[in-house]
Amino acid sequence: MFDFSILISNPLINVAVVSWCAAQILKTSIHLFKHGEFKKERLSGAGGMPSSHSAVTCSVLLTSYLIYGFSSPIFAMAFVLALIVMYDATGVRWAAGLHAKAINYIVEYLGDENTKDKDQLKEMIPKLNESLGHRMIEVVCGALLGFAISLIGYFCF
């Protein structure tokens, strides 16, 4: 018989999963409040407020510090990973989202110019996801959410 307690026995995985779920639910709720529509894609999609990537990596970062200490290799790896993920979210992924927005605009513009080929053009180039990266405030809020969940998990459970 499989021992299901193993699924909840790793505190680093636990805070990561809880942080991701909390960030995605918040992201979906903020979108619903802001735009008045529920989009189930927000429950698993990238981009938006708060950054779930930052929440996950920062919750693992702080939990690894609290459990293993500053000089542990686990903390060092979590620290480096958090820096890379947050830099990538505000840099490379943000730029990719801007490129997707520009390509979508070009495709729409070309389709408007020649309505005969509009459907064929849209078939060749489907609308790209523009919400890939994050603004700095979204990353900071995600990091704060991750830290909060880490502290709650560590001191309350």
Score class of each variant (00 low, 15 high):
36 G>P: 00
37 E>Y: 04
37 E>F: 08
38 F>C: 12
39 K>D: 09
40 K>L: 07
40 K>E: 12
43 L>I: 04
43 L>D: 15
44 S>K: 11
46 A>G: 12
47 G>D: 03
47 G>H: 08
48 G>V: 04
49 M>R: 06
49 M>A: 01
50 P>C: 02
53 H>E: 05
53 H>I: 06
53 H>W: 01
58 C>N: 14
58 C>L: 04
60 V>T: 11
61 L>A: 04
61 L>R: 11
64 S>W: 13
65 Y>W: 05
67 I>L: 07
69 G>M: 00
70 F>P: 15
71 S>C: 10
73 P>A: 00
74 I>S: 09
80 V>M: 06
81 L>D: 09
82 A>S: 09
83 L>Y: 11
85 V>T: 05
86 M>E: 02
86 M>Y: 03
87 Y>L: 10
88 D>Y: 03
88 D>G: 02
89 A>R: 12
89 A>E: 12
90 T>I: 06
90 T>W: 02
93 R>P: 13
96 A>Y: 06
96 A>F: 04
99 H>F: 09
99 H>Y: 15
101 K>Y: 08
104 N>S: 14
104 N>H: 06
105 Y>H: 14
105 Y>M: 11
106 I>M: 04
106 I>C: 08
107 V>N: 01
108 E>K: 15
109 Y>S: 10
109 Y>V: 05
110 L>I: 00
111 G>M: 01
112 D>A: 11
113 E>P: 01
116 K>V: 13
116 K>P: 00
119 D>C: 07
120 Q>G: 11
120 Q>E: 13
121 L>Y: 06
122 K>L: 12
124 M>Y: 05
127 K>M: 07
129 N>Y: 07
129 N>T: 11
130 E>A: 05
130 E>T: 08
134 H>W: 12
134 H>S: 07
136 M>P: 14
